[in-house]
Design a protein around this nucleic acid. Sequence first.
RNA 1: GGAGAGGUGGCGGAGUCCGGUUGAACGUGCCUGACUCGAAAUCAGGUGUACUCGCAAGGGUACCGUGGGUUCGAAUCCCACCCUCUCCGCCA
Length: 425
Amino acid sequence: MLDPRCLADRRDEIVESCRRRGVSADVDAAVAAYQGVAALQTELNELNRRRNEHQTRGVGKHPPAEREEHVAEGRRLKDEVASAEGRLADAQVALSDSLADLPNFVHPQAPVGGEDDFRELRRVGTPRDFDFAPLDHLALGERLELFDFEAGAKVTGQKFYYLKNAAVLLELALQRLALDIVIEEGFTPFSTPDLARRAVVDSFAFSPRGPETQIYSVENTDLDLIGTAEITLGGIYADAILEEAALPLKLGGISHCYRTEAGSPGRESKGLYRVHQFTKVEMFAFTRPEDSEAMHDHLLEVEERIFQALEIPYRVIDVATGDLGAPAYRKFDVEAWMPGRGESGAFGEVTSASNCTDFQARRLKVRLRRTGSKRNELVHTLNGTALAVPRTIIALLENHQRADGSIALPKALQPYLGRESIEGP
RNA sequence: GGAGAGGUGGCGGAGUCCGGUUGAACGUGCCUGACUCGAAAUCAGGUGUACUCGCAAGGGUACCGUGGGUUCGAAUCCCACCCUCUCCGCCA
């Protein structure tokens, strides 16, 4: 969330960032709500001060008559305090509702517009020129008996799947490859829980565009299945005060991700492209405010390094303001070339790196203690996908397929699989 | 899952039975100053977080696992929940 104290000062800036995002939010209502809270807080403080004053004189060593007087006054103030507390609580709810509608600021260089208005930063690798008609991952998977969507649907539901045969090993190999690179880049590896307390999930899942929940909840518990290890990694340091020397803090997490993905699978999201459960290696970083942009670039570099190792052509885009999540100040996506996507191949999102500045940190209460400074400040948080298994499998199969339907494995992956290609079951 | 014990400031650890001037004894760590050529030891002072008022200096309020309740007043009493430890059971 935004700093309620900066609302009035930065009002025009906030209005502008909402405009660029295409979000309608009542900034002035938030300003007013904050002022209401501050006024009530002051009022309550004063009442408490008076109450405390009477209390210290209503104690044993004072003469009984005087004592009675102060106790009586305290009794009277009790109602006033209760009333002020009630009004303050209401005002705080109003403020927090108002704040929930306000997304983060946007980076001045982020392209303004909707989903299609991204800026392409670069292309790496060249899509192959096939001398045969390339298949999509579903057809390849069928030939090689890699997936079972029917069993997934039967046992669990639509958009669930089984991996089979070489795909099982491939899933492990991809995770390990990504993990090894992430560790080499200085991230501390974690294997995280796949569930988290609702309260923790809520401190990440800010959706200013309505309660379109993406999250599965577990009945009769206060647990949700996580949509990303961002939650379980970032949550580790909730409420923490980090020493300046401890930053940047780089975490790498491996977890399953669960997303309800309401709506039926269309042509753009067939097969493994959009599924309810998948395995992902995630990166998360806490930095000093002045370091977050460099860290953002770093996360992107690691993501690119992984796709280069996999010899998959991709492009990097600077996501348009209208397509940023509420917490993101700026977001870079890596889109891999998928020969089986669309009519004759298309780019498909495989990773995403976001700089959330202090937006998440404020709710998570992750602060930074500067050496020598007495005032703590908020850290910046960033997250990036190292590797999401299903979409990577799509790109891998489709790009490295051979005329006979087998798959040539990139060199970097071969040691993890102990073979040079996937020939069949 | 069952039985028991417990969650207090950076750490250790009082206080909780018998509610009151306790943001919290004591110890330790840390910072500053004095002494010293320097260090140790010693002495003096300082040392949590958040909110709020204030240009500032500074003032005020809240916080003893979390959330409710009783009371003029709660770290202390009551209820619920979370977590940790020990023992038993169960399980990969």
